[in-house]
Amino acid sequence: MSASYLPLLNSSLPLPHSTTRNVFVTQSEDSRKDGIVNHISLKTSSRALEGGVNTLQKTLILNKQADLDEVDKRLALKRQEFKSCVEILNHRRSQLEEKHKQTKERVAKFEKFVAENEAKRRRALQRCEATREENAVKQREIEDLTERLKQLGARKQVLKRRMEKYKIYEDYFLKTLDFFPGNSLDSGSESLVMPVIRRHESLSVTRQELLQRLRRMEEQVEHGYTLLHSMKQQHSTEKRVARKELSELQSELETLRERNKQAEVNLQKEQGLSRERVEEEGRLLLAVSNLAEQCFLPGYGPLEDMSVVTMMDMVKEYILDKADTERRARRLMGAASAMTEKATRKASVKSPGSKTQMKSSSKVSRKSETLS
């Protein structure tokens, strides 16, 4: 809101004398024409003007104060909006921090889970290897026991045939024993049949033990086969997973090889450009060294110890020195030609053969100019 301030009137300044009287501008023209004009003194009019200006300034100050109050209200609203935005942002920041924390915890749990799975896989592989070795040992034991069982079966068949062969004699002896009285057997020495019977009993007991042991070994072998089958399935699944990972790694390896090939091509290009730059720099250095040999100045020291910048400075100084010398020689030759021309002119004035001397001097000046 722009307002034009009126300048304060200074009552101390002298006013110019005028023939017209002081009149309020608010009076109408008709009243002034009719002669009804309120004449006031100069002092009264200046006070009225000062009061009007003060009233205008107060009005402007009130307007400014109202505008300032409106701006304060808007600023308070903006501050409230900013405060609410800051609270929302803080709330969102806390939510994001909580989510980030939860993500970190999930990543840590996942890494722990992966480590535990890796440890379980290693333990399973170790158990698989141990079980495989144990199965191999058990298989060898089973083969040995099977071979021994076959031998015992063959021996059993031989003993069975032998028992069948001697069965008639046993029956004969048993029938014969039935006809002997009961006290005739207590002769103080054991009969020859009892060791055979005891041997048969011991062999039958041994046979039963071997059969029970064979059953236990067969059960262990069956359990080992089932465990081996489950471990083979687990190994096949792990092998498929490993093949999948291997294929992914191979694909990554192929992409890395392609990138390496592209990088090698770029490197070869850069090496070719650098080689060309090196060759160009070598040619420049050779040209600078040749110029330095031609423009050698003893003040710069030996040529072998100079750097390239020193050589170029020496060549520059040599060229500037030669140019300065050439300019001086031309000036001297010009001055000499001018002096000869003046001398010939004076001689031509004195002697009649001045024309020939002037011609010769002009020829000499032309030769000097051509030489310069």
Rank of each mutant, 00 (worst) to 15 (best):
A3N: 12
S4L: 11
Y5D: 15
L9V: 07
N10L: 02
N10W: 00
P14F: 07
T20H: 09
R21D: 04
V23M: 03
V23H: 14
V25D: 07
V25H: 09
Q27S: 04
S28I: 00
E29L: 10
D34R: 11
S41E: 04
T44S: 15
T44V: 15
S45E: 13
S45A: 11
R47S: 12
L49C: 05
E50F: 14
T59M: 13
I61A: 15
K64P: 01
V71T: 15
R79H: 02
V86C: 10
V86H: 05
V86S: 11
E87L: 05
H91Q: 04
K99Y: 05
K101R: 15
K101E: 05
Q102N: 04
A115K: 07
N117E: 05
Q126S: 06
C128M: 12
A130R: 03
R132W: 07
E133P: 02
E133A: 06
A136F: 13
D144V: 09
K150A: 01
R155C: 08
Q157L: 02
Q157M: 08
K160L: 06
R161K: 08
E164N: 06
K167E: 11
E170I: 07
E170A: 12
D171L: 05
Y172Q: 13
D178N: 03
E190H: 13
V193P: 01
M194F: 15
P195W: 00
P195N: 00
I197N: 12
H200P: 06
H200M: 08
S202G: 11
L203V: 01
Q212P: 10
M217W: 14
E219V: 11
Q220F: 05
E222D: 13
E222Y: 06
G224N: 08
L228Q: 09
H229G: 14
Q233H: 10
H235G: 13
T237R: 14
V241W: 15
E248L: 03
E248G: 02
L249R: 11
L249C: 09
Q250L: 03
Q250T: 12
E264F: 05
V265D: 02
G272D: 13
E279M: 03
G282N: 03
V288F: 08
V288R: 02
S289K: 12
A292T: 00
E293M: 04
E293V: 01
Q294H: 09
Q294C: 04
F296P: 00
G299P: 04
G301E: 00
E304C: 05
I319W: 01
L320R: 11
K322W: 03
A323V: 11
D324F: 12
A329Q: 12
R331G: 07
L332Y: 14
L332G: 04
M333D: 03
T340K: 13
A343K: 04
A343I: 04
V349I: 10
P352G: 04
S362L: 12
K363I: 04
S365K: 15
R366M: 13
